[in-house]
Structure formats: structure tokens, C-alpha cells
């Protein structure tokens, strides 16, 4: 089937109309860069399999530079039927072969079918027009401004039944805990902060409060709201993530910080345009 396109020099040329196009990130800043601590990437296999399966006229293969979400290296992107399917952690032969098997399935089915579970687990969304594979809102890591804030004086906590089934694992006092690489010995036998960022998040909130930037209840109400909202969504219990979200929300509400400048600053850190660490 001829697909004639007229070039600017007037020549009538044929352009192959493919069923899909596979982009593999291999020559960029991160993917496959073992010198940067990123897993190796089976680059040759992508090309070999593409030849072996005789995909040339049906699926175009582009092995090239940075595709974007560097934090998820190694990354591949499949354009198919107007969809953009991103896959992360494409680190080994098994993953690549699964991707090609899936492409074969798509060709055979002649309609869109979702990836098999093993491949679906590696799928993600990197564009605002695609829903996340898990169906969660794309901005799910942001503070939830719309979350109802229980009235601290009246709210009754009604715990879901499954909470009752879970056992508490009290961290017993660690007798004779010495100085270790894990951190200084704690007088209560437990690490105060499990990671540096938790301490910074805690310290920022308390410092701002001590300077009377806000009254504690303003923060506490938002913390309760964030904890409740995360619990309702069944998100993992990372306490200081809620803490940071509550602080962020309070500062946004007070107009001390804007979401845009915070998003922008976060990306500057992500892409190494800033590197001061506190």
C-alpha cells in the first residue's frame, strides 16, 4: 500500500505506515549507564529480536537518547493505536522478550489488548492524557486540599475492621544499643528519624511554629486530615510523608509558598539543576 507524501523539494516519496513504534532509551543521561549506578540494558537484544521477529515493516524501532522519566531507568516507550505505553526497569532479557511477545500479541489480535500481568507491573504513565495503570489520581503524591478535616473535638475514629486484625509489633527497648552506622544511640532505644528527610520535615514544622509562623492547631488539623485521607485510600503508612504533606498544605494556605514554585524547585533537584543539600 503506497503512502505517497510530497517533500518540500517536490519529490513524491513513500512513507511506511507502521502499526506501532518502539522507543528504547539507551544513549541518554541515565538508561543503561552502569557508571552511574543504573542497571545495564540489553541494547543488542532489542535489535536482534526486532530482526528475528521480522517486525521491520510493521513496528519501527528507535534506539536513542533520553525519553524522560530518568528516575525510572531503564525506560522503553511503545506507541500503539494512539496509546502511549511506558515501561520502566527494562533491565534484563526476560523483560525485553516479554515486551516483544506482547507486540506479537498486539499484531495478531489486530486490536488493543492490555499487557500480560508480568509486563503490566512495569507499566507507568508519563503524560497528562493517560490514566495511571493503578487508576489512582495522577497527583496522588500531592497534599489533598479537598480532604475533609475532622473536627478534633468531635471526630470519632471508626477504624476499618482490618486494622483490628493487624498485630502491633512493639519495638522493644534495645538494651545496650551502641553507636552504629545506623545512627546515634537513642535514649528511648529507637531511631528518632529513620531517614534524614524525616528530621528535616519535622524540624521545619517545629521551627516555623516556634517562630510563630503558625499556631500548632493549624498544623495539627491538616495532619489529621492527611492521615485520614491517606488511610481512606489505603496508602502505606509513612508518617512523615503525611507530616510533610500537612506542612506543605499549611504553607500553601497561608500563601507563603506556591505550588508552582514548589513543583518547579522539586524538578530542579530531580534533574540536578540544583544540588544544595540541607
Amino acid at each position: 500500500m503506497r503512502n505517497i507524501v510530497v517533500r518540500t523539494d517536490g519529490k513524491r516519496m513513500h512513507a511506511t505506515r507502521v502499526r506501532g513504534q518502539l522507543f528504547v532509551c539507551a544513549d541518554g543521561c541515565c538508561c543503561g549507564r552502569t557508571d552511574q549506578g543504573i542497571p545495564a540494558l540489553p541494547r543488542d537484544l532489542y535489535h536482534r529480536e526486532w530482526l528475528r521477529r521480522r517486525l521491520r515493516s510493521r513496528v519501527h524501532l528507535t534506539i536513542g537518547g533520553c525519553l524522560g522519566p530518568c528516575s525510572l531507568a531503564n525506560v522503553a516507550m511503545l506507541l500503539w493505536g494512539g496509546r502511549t505505553l511506558w515501561f520502566h526497569s527494562m533491565n534484563d532479557e526476560t523483560a525485553v522478550l516479554r515486551l516483544y511477545d506482547y507486540i506479537d500479541t498486539l499484531l495478531e489480535a489486530d486490536t488493543f489488548v492490555p499487557p500480560p500481568p508480568a509486563l503490566e507491573r512495569l507499566r507507568f504513565t508519563a503524560s497528562s492524557w493517560e490514566v495511571r495503570p493503578d487508576g489512582q489520581p495522577v497527583e496522588d503524591r500531592r497534599p489533598r486540599g479537598a480532604a475533609p478535616m475532622p473536627d478534633a473535638a468531635q471526630a470519632r475514629v471508626v477504624p476499618p475492621d482490618d486494622l483490628l486484625a493487624r498485630e502491633i509489633r512493639p519495638d522493644r527497648q534495645v538494651a545496650g544499643m551502641d553507636d552504629t552506622a545506623a545512627g546515634a544511640p537513642r535514649k528511648n532505644g529507637e531511631l528518632v528519624f529513620h531517614a534524614a528527610w524525616e528530621g528535616r520535615a519535622f524540624g521545619m514544622a517545629v521551627t516555623l511554629h516556634e517562630q510563630q509562623t503558625f499556631v500548632w492547631d493549624e498544623f495539627r488539623d491538616r495532619l489529621i486530615g492527611q492521615i485520614a485521607a491517606a488511610g481512606a485510600q489505603g496508602e502505606p503508612e509513612v508518617y512523615y510523608e503525611r507530616w510533610l504533606a500537612a506542612l506543605e498544605l499549611l504553607l500553601l494556605d497561608k500563601g507563603l509558598v506556591t505550588r508552582d514554585e514548589l513543583d518547579e524547585r522539586t524538578e530542579e533537584y530531580e534533574f540536578g539543576e540544583r544540588d544544595e543539600v540541607f
Binding site: C29, C70, M204, E241, E248, L262, F271, D275
Partner: peptide, 22 residues
């Protein structure tokens, strides 16, 4: 070229961004 060597979790970047702004 100037990308950070080891990508850090979002929460770490976010905390740093907030402190930097404040």
C-alpha cells in the same frame, strides 16, 4: 550530562525543595 547520579525518591526531593524555598 548533568543529571544526578543516583535518582532520589520523590519525598526526599520534595523535602529539600521545600526547605530550599523557605
Amino acid at each position: 550530562g548533568n543529571h544526578k547520579v543516583e535518582p532520589e525518591p520523590w519525598i526526599v526531593l520534595r523535602t529539600r525543595a521545600l526547605e530550599s524555598l523557605l
